[in-house]
Design a protein around this nucleic acid. Sequence first.
RNA 1: GCCUUGGUAGCUCAGCCUGGUAGAGCGUUACCUUGGUAAGGUAGAGGUCCGGGGUCCAAAUCCCCGCCAAGGCUCCA
Length: 628
Amino acid sequence: MRLLQLHSDFIEYEPIEKEIRDAEEIVSKSKIRLEDLVVAFVAVEDRDDESVVKIAVDEIKKYLDMVKSSRLLIYPYAHLSSDLAPPTLAIDIIKSVESFAKGSINQVYRAPFGWTKSFNIKVKGHPLAENSKEISKQEEHKHADPLHREKESSALKNEEKLQSFWYIAQPGGEMTAISKYNFKKQNQNLQMLVNYELAKNRAVNEQPAHVRLMKKLALADYEPASDAGNIRFYPKGRLMKSLIEQYVTRRVMEYGGIEVETPIMYDTKHPSLQSYFNRFPARQYNITSDNKQLFLRFAACFGQFLMAKDFNISYKHLPLKLYELTRYSFRREKSGELVGLRRLRAFTMPDCHAFCRDLDQAKEEFLKRFELSISVLNDLGLTIKDVEMAIRFTEDFYNENKDFMTDLINRFGKPVLVETWKERFFYFTLKWEFNFIDGLGKASALSTDQIDVENGARYGVEFVEEDGTKKNPIILHNSPSGAIERVIYALLEKSAKISKEGGIASLPLWLSHTQVRVIPVSQEHIVYCEKVLAELTENQIRADVDDRDETVGKKIRESETEWVRYTIVIGDKEINSDKLIVRDRNEGKQREITLHNLINEVKAQTRDKPYLPLNLPLRLSARPQIIV
RNA sequence: GCCUUGGUAGCUCAGCCUGGUAGAGCGUUACCUUGGUAAGGUAGAGGUCCGGGGUCCAAAUCCCCGCCAAGGCUCCA
């Protein structure tokens, strides 16, 4: 017996005419509408007998409980099988299913057997809404086997290939099965990552700290007029984001990345993309334009692969590295999955692909990019201490590249989470990522790299080998920082952690909106303040002056709550001497310094980092108020 | 999608249980104050109590339907 269950908002059906001679007689041919129910499409197959009835009803009942529904429509649907039972037997079995189901299910309906029916159905969108089963007489034995798992139509996955084995690998290369590993105190975050990945035990009832901070610091906010997960960035957030974007781009270009730009929407009917879609039921924004079905990119991969396909590449050009910073990549994550800046539907992703000649070259390049990623994160204010690494690979890859794997783990220098598969299902054979663990124990991937052995051929990317033959390259997929929004999330969450432990929450100076704030004691000092301001600005330091008609105390308080690192108060004393009194927020106290030395101090801390001027009026009285 | 919580002034929220004049703080406007390292004072303006329906003499408040959001579940190739 074949069973397809759909959790539906409604179904409407209307018997049109008898399809077979043995069709049952029906009372009325009028249209029937049922709401909020499970529709079970049933096909009775040749081998079936009455013994499948109980099994089928048990399955249906289990499914109804799972989706918390108590209304069932049994809908005979021959098209589920090509091996149908004779109609007379089928109708008996279906009727048995109906009467048996009535014993345990509140409301049971059945559509007539043997009729052509028109129907209109709306299936709910949740992951369990579609469920397909094949029921046979041996089903009961299968159930006794704990390894037996259900097939779900929505998962096109080959589950055997997908079964994961989990380990902790330590520097040196030793691997311990996760159940046997003893987590030490310093590995708390790794343990949280393991919990997050495996135990799925992460119920918390709090708003993440960064959501409050992104609003308080006037960086970013939700945009109610857009789709959820599409964030608005205020001037301060935009500036911070621009700086990170410029920094990451510069580092990738120094590494050898060639910057390109690719479209944000693609035709679903394109052959390369189509085969990708068939394999991975995607979550993307769809657009219909004229007669085309387009989707918004969820990564820079397609654009770069389609571009590389048209290149004339020799082995001498490899590794060839293409880079794009996507603003945006889109993923239509389910509404409930979206959180602040952590998980969005539109995000900015640095994406660098390296096309490599062979595995040896890919491995060599892989290590370079690993070092690049660590260095980039470090400069952004996130060290190895702040992240946990996960490595995922196929067993074959591991067995053939043990030394390489050990090298990778040693470079990280801490125990890492390992996930392995017996066979390759995804397009990569090896993947690592750095996960940031936030104050609520949630893990989010930042930097990542993958060895892709599949998409070269899928997209028809080729290079000419030394002997003149054409080959598909191995492709590495690296994002040295992860999504820019997510970097900001991690920085804010890290600050919140520090603050919770009694420290001073702050952002790296080069990413701070205002680096120095100048406060006049009274209106008559403003002119002098602006001179100081001009000198700071000339030296590429972001400084502003609080010329509003407020008391000094209040201005200082606001400077502190805005996380401004250096605050200078200027009155008669300062005008008549060459010394300034600076309030250093990191130290929590004031000290005397000359303007020249202050400039040098700031420059020393922001050396080699991008600079952008303030994107708001330098006088606070001229700024619109953005937050409370 | 499901579960939970929420939607009241520009912002953050109280009021709702127990129906009867629309509230506070911050911000904003005006005036006073001209200041020295974390909030100076006084006065004013500011409301479709998310939308629709119902109950009631009377609904921000109770009931029903809907919309939107957040958090959780799930998911995260």
